[in-house]
Design a protein around this nucleic acid. Sequence first.
DNA 1: CTGTTAGCGCTTTCAT
DNA 2: ATGAAAGCGCTAACAG
Lengths: 356, 356
Amino acid sequence: MPKKIRIKDIARLAGVSAGTVDRVLHNRGNVSTKARQAVEAVLEKVDYKPNIHVSALSLKRTYKIVITTPVVSPGEYWESIHHGFRYAKEAYSNLKLTIEVLTYNQYDIFSCREMFRQIAEMEMDALIIGPTFHNETYTLCEKMDERNIPYIFVDSNNDGTHPLAFFSSDHYMCGTLMAKLITSLIPVDSKIGILHAVRVGNQSANSTILRKRGFMDYISKQEAAYQVLRIPFSVEEPKNNESYLSRFFSVHHDIPGVVVMNSRGNYVANYLHSNQIHDVKMVCLDLTTPNVEALKKGRIDFLIGQEPEYQGFRAMKTMLEHLIFNKPVKRENYVQLDILTRENIGFYKRFNNIML
Amino acid sequence: MPKKIRIKDIARLAGVSAGTVDRVLHNRGNVSTKARQAVEAVLEKVDYKPNIHVSALSLKRTYKIVITTPVVSPGEYWESIHHGFRYAKEAYSNLKLTIEVLTYNQYDIFSCREMFRQIAEMEMDALIIGPTFHNETYTLCEKMDERNIPYIFVDSNNDGTHPLAFFSSDHYMCGTLMAKLITSLIPVDSKIGILHAVRVGNQSANSTILRKRGFMDYISKQEAAYQVLRIPFSVEEPKNNESYLSRFFSVHHDIPGVVVMNSRGNYVANYLHSNQIHDVKMVCLDLTTPNVEALKKGRIDFLIGQEPEYQGFRAMKTMLEHLIFNKPVKRENYVQLDILTRENIGFYKRFNNIML
DNA sequence: CTGTTAGCGCTTTCAT
DNA sequence: ATGAAAGCGCTAACAG
């Protein structure tokens, strides 16, 4: 086992001092071309892995990171992502970090637009974005590109922008997977109910569109002739949902399977249960507290998880390691699509233990 | 945000020096009762989290850790566990570690007995065990208990022993989950083929027994009357398997589903494929390279993963943090049972990225 | 038994 | 532009 190589070793090999090596490693300037080349030559040869924890120990400067995502509510998807942010911060607790969190209403495009407008002007070293609306996000990112401030996406990528990286599930494949699962649970040629959020303001969220496309593509490739029926539902005006659902299920009383493409599956599951409509198989999304409960009670059959904690953790970790060490970054990062049932849900508690 | 508390702070608050605090924290002795109590009183009050990476930096002593598991072959289950060991070692690369790996033949009880006999006498600070045979493991652990050497299990626990911790899947629940999945894929009341390894020497591995029990319990609780048929198979004498399988499937030509409770699912899947036996649904275990391939080709429908890398990682990490920091240890650790399909398998690459 | 000190790998300041 | 030196939090050796 070759001994671990340190800055001091590189310095010796290059015939310079440790200080100079450090300056080269961090592009701090004030290095002669000759010295730089000598150091770079050595770096080519040896496998230097800086110990980032030790590094953090002696770092003086403070970094400011801004985070913007949809509003965070307890037990919901975005809270898990924020947990991930926090764990990453914890893991590098010697760093001097200032984190500012700014949330917007993901169902209101105007709220998002206003918030992003403010963010575009703020002082910061880096930005982490949980995007919802394509154009608003695009505008913000354009500004960041101009200002040379790196940004990373969580939950979704946003076409046309130039993020340092994104951590997201493959929403198209998510839809495909949901289709595969629901069709494995119900008889061929039957009806399938499908529910997804519509947002007022104007457009749908990108992720929803992709999921639905993946779903429909899978269905249409099957030999069996499934009939897919849209279930009306509004996240913003919940008072109407009860009647939407009762109307839908009274017309389609024979429907054997429902897929919910946002995180409100529990709402439908519990509706069905309290109205004694059994034998409707359900495939839903995200391990929110109410969804997990419904899964455990057998009211949901399969739940798809998107590793939100991990997304947040990796986004923050990647950003810090980029900022501090110019550590090379992998741009496209698709997270796992976890399939949960009442049998295996009990073992999914990713963050009690992991990552420090 | 309260400022991070350091040893120096504790020392000041307790009216002693940093050296004394360190001695208390590590039970190194040479501390007066009075000083100890003063320090302990402070520790009660403040939330001190030692920075283990910095700590490792200044640690002088060398730790020797012995690992014993079944033989490791490329692309198989145990290799993944060993990857986990290595990643954990990497994560604490400032520590001076000597790792000795000693493997045995998991299908030969005598090989195991002999190896464990040697290990029982070796010099070491800690032991990590991937157990197979109950009694052999028990004997080894008794010896370790006597010698006061801590040990941790991966893959399975072993009843009657006193490990510091174990990292394992819940094998009973694994069987249950496999039953749930196969029954969701095939018609009610049909036959199910089930395959699991038998070991020469004497008994079956503990994990296999538990898995089968979980499977059968689930089946017998169903209203439908499934008929479960054992498929003969030998890992040690692979030459007979072809004829075992062809005999089995010619008798039960109408069988709609097969469950494989060891990691050789690909063998059956590929047999079926090359003999043009289609429409047999398969639920198999472990993300070995050949299993993953068979899953991607659609020859396996569901594959169950047991987070082997994570098991290894956590086992090693836990041991190191115990050894070096007396960090409190959670004894029972059940890992996720991941459900993989050809749709989501592509996103499971736990160790390209995580944990350093 | 206890405080002081040197040193781990790295960054940063300060002379030069 | 560069090397020397101090200091981050922690441990270990040493002197008392």
